[in-house]
Simulated assay, not measured.
Amino acid sequence: MGLGDKIQNKAQEVSGKIKESVGDATDNEKLQAEGVKDQAAAKAKQAGENVKDAAKDVRDDLTK
């Protein structure tokens, strides 16, 4: 995973946490749900990038 991707995914996750917290504090269910959705999307992207990294590591090991 590239550093830029890690930063973007973490920023999306943090943004989602903030939205969720603000939604909780203001009883705004829509904002809270949007925050949860953003966090889930960021985690899914991170998982996909981790799979790519693992596949690259396996490929590199096999070529040695």
Rank of each mutant, 00 (worst) to 15 (best):
M1G: 04
G2E: 02
G2D: 07
L3M: 01
G4W: 00
G4P: 01
D5I: 00
D5A: 04
K6E: 10
K6L: 09
K6M: 10
I7E: 09
I7V: 11
Q8N: 13
N9P: 03
Q12F: 03
Q12T: 14
E13C: 08
V14Y: 09
V14M: 13
V14S: 12
S15A: 14
S15Y: 08
K17S: 13
K17V: 08
I18H: 08
I18R: 07
K19N: 12
K19F: 06
E20G: 12
S21T: 14
S21L: 12
V22P: 06
V22G: 11
V22K: 05
G23V: 07
D24E: 14
D24G: 12
A25S: 15
T26A: 15
T26I: 13
T26K: 05
D27Y: 03
D27S: 13
D27C: 09
N28Q: 10
E29A: 07
L31K: 07
L31F: 07
Q32A: 14
Q32W: 01
Q32F: 02
E34T: 10
E34D: 15
G35T: 13
V36D: 13
K37I: 10
D38T: 11
D38R: 06
A42Q: 04
A42I: 06
A44H: 02
A44T: 05
K45H: 06
A47L: 03
A47R: 00
E49D: 15
E49T: 00
E49K: 00
N50D: 14
N50Q: 12
V51D: 00
V51N: 00
K52W: 00
D53C: 01
A54H: 06
A54E: 15
A54N: 11
A54Q: 12
A55K: 09
K56D: 12
K56W: 00
K56I: 05
D57C: 01
D57K: 01
D57S: 08
V58D: 08
V58H: 01
R59P: 02
R59H: 07
D60N: 05
D60M: 04
D60H: 02
L62P: 04
L62E: 08
T63Y: 01
T63H: 04
T63V: 11
K64T: 13
